[in-house]
Simulated assay, not measured.
Amino acid sequence: MSIGNSPEDERPFEDVSDEARLSVGRALQQARIAAGLTVDDVSNATRVRLPIVHAIEADDFAPCGGDVYARGHIRTLARAVALDPGPLLAQYDADHGGRPAPTPAAPLFEAERIRPERRGPNWTAAMVAAIVAVVGFVGFTAFKGEDDGGSAAVAEGATPSAGTSATTKPKTEKPEDPKPEPSDSAIAAAPQDKVTVRVSAADGESWISAKDHTGGLLFDGLLKQGESKTFQDSERINLVLGDAGAIQLYVNGKKIDDKWQPGAVERLTYTKGDPQAG
């Protein structure tokens, strides 16, 4: 027995290499801390989402979505924290049943084989359709020619009567001209047994009202500038002029020269014989 050493110090060293070995996530975490980086720094630098970085450092590879993606994330994170990704990938494969097998190429070639072939245009069907169209057009043309010939023969042999000519255009009836207002000469030739009054809005518009000797209304409305109205009665015409200054009067063919003021309202009565305001 050695002096100064206890029995515990003399026991043989145990092989604790497997227990002392760091896991993949722990190795990445320690390397990140040693590099002075936060999880946010690593996530921003590698574009690996923050929850996945946390899960990998906790040796939870389920959020990666499969071994292929997990190996890719381990390689990316190892390079970001200055670690060799080779030993970490080998350790991950040993812990998870080996490296994933490559995707077989047979399904790709199978999918390529079943892709439908591109066919060219069906020229036979196109030629048949063209022939049918030509034959139909020729037949239609021949039938139309015979029909036109028969019509021409009928047209040459028949002599249409003058009263039933198909080409004669119907006469368009000329619209009747509106009856003109009586002129000064017409007023002058008015019957002597009646009173005739013509009202003309020469200098502006004016409201007028005209009644016969029985009180019957002949006109009641606005007479616009340039318009005229003529009234006749067997005995008497009663007038009301809303703006007498804008009106010219002709009574029994003679012009009334009264100087009415603009805007003046005049009530007038005219009878047979010489003009005389009632």
Rank of each mutant, 00 (worst) to 15 (best):
L217Q: 04
T196N: 02
T164E: 10
S183Q: 11
A158Y: 13
E156D: 10
D274I: 05
E156N: 14
E181H: 11
E181P: 13
G263A: 01
Q192G: 12
V265I: 09
A264T: 01
K194C: 00
R198Q: 15
E235Q: 03
R198Y: 07
N252F: 05
A202P: 10
S165L: 05
T271A: 00
P175M: 01
P175R: 11
Q225W: 08
D184Y: 13
G253E: 04
S185G: 11
E156A: 12
Q248M: 01
S200T: 15
A189H: 13
W260M: 14
K179A: 04
I256E: 01
D177C: 10
G204P: 02
I247F: 06
A244H: 01
I187E: 14
T196F: 00
W260T: 11
I256M: 02
K211D: 04
S200C: 12
P191C: 10
T172H: 09
S228Q: 03
D258P: 08
S161A: 15
P180H: 03
E227T: 07
D233L: 05
S183F: 11
L249N: 01
K194P: 04
T167L: 15
P170F: 15
H213L: 00
K171F: 11
E235G: 10
S209C: 03
R267M: 02
A189T: 13
T168Y: 13
Q261A: 10
N238Y: 12
G216D: 08
T214Q: 01
G273W: 06
A202C: 09
L241T: 07
D203V: 07
N252G: 11
E235K: 12
Q225I: 06
A244K: 02
A166W: 12
D258V: 05
G226I: 09
D274H: 04
A186N: 09
D258I: 14
R267V: 08
I237K: 09
A188G: 14
D184H: 09
A186S: 11
A189F: 11
G216Q: 01
Y270A: 02
A188M: 14
T214Y: 00
D184R: 14
T269A: 12
T269S: 13
P191N: 10
V240S: 15
L268W: 02
V199Q: 03
T271E: 06
V265N: 15
E181L: 15
D212W: 01
Q225K: 15
W207K: 12
G263L: 00
L217Y: 00
F231A: 02
Q261D: 13
S165Y: 04
K179W: 08
T167W: 08
I208G: 00
P175G: 04
G253F: 05
Q232G: 06
K174N: 05
T159G: 04
W260S: 09
G216S: 09
A264R: 04
K174T: 06
E156S: 11
E227Y: 02
D257M: 07
P275G: 06
T271D: 03
S185M: 08
Q248N: 03
D220C: 05
D274L: 14
K171Q: 09
D257N: 14
V265E: 15
A189M: 14
R236V: 08
L239G: 04
A246E: 03
T269K: 13
A162E: 12
E176Q: 10
S183W: 12
A264C: 00
D212P: 04
A158C: 15
K174W: 00
S228A: 14
L239M: 06
Y270L: 00
D243A: 08
E156Q: 15
I187P: 01
G263I: 04
G204I: 06
A188R: 13
